[in-house]
């Protein structure tokens, strides 16, 4: 398991879900989160590495880090 410096306020387990499931799960959480919330999105869909940063850029939130785990990715996001 890879390490990260971020301690998420919210963790979304979207492993096993296919596009656009992980992104839509993230959008749903961002919608109800206060600014400054750190969210960990766990996704096994490689497409998330493209569509999540693209949406964050569009919506004005920050991608803090992407950590490769054994069989999924942890994407750390901070809301603005």
């Amino acid at each position: 398991m890879s390490e990260t410096e971020y301690d998420p306020d919210v963790t979304i387990d979207a492993r096993g879900s296919t596009c656009p499931g992980p992104l839509m799960d993230l959008i749903g959480k961002v919608k109800e989160a206060d600014p400054g919330t750190v969210i960990e999105l766990q996704t096994s869909d490689s497409g998330s590495k493209g569509d999540v940063p693209e949406w964050l850029d569009e919506a004005g939130h920050d991608l803090l880090e992407v950590v490769e785990q054994d069989d999924y990715w942890s994407m750390y996001v901070e809301t603005n």
Binding site: C19, P20, L23, M24, I27, D51, E54, W55
Partner: peptide, 8 residues
């Protein structure tokens, strides 16, 4: 549509 294209 919510994502980057017209359909999932």
């Amino acid at each position: 549509y919510p994502i980057q294209r017209a359909h999932a």
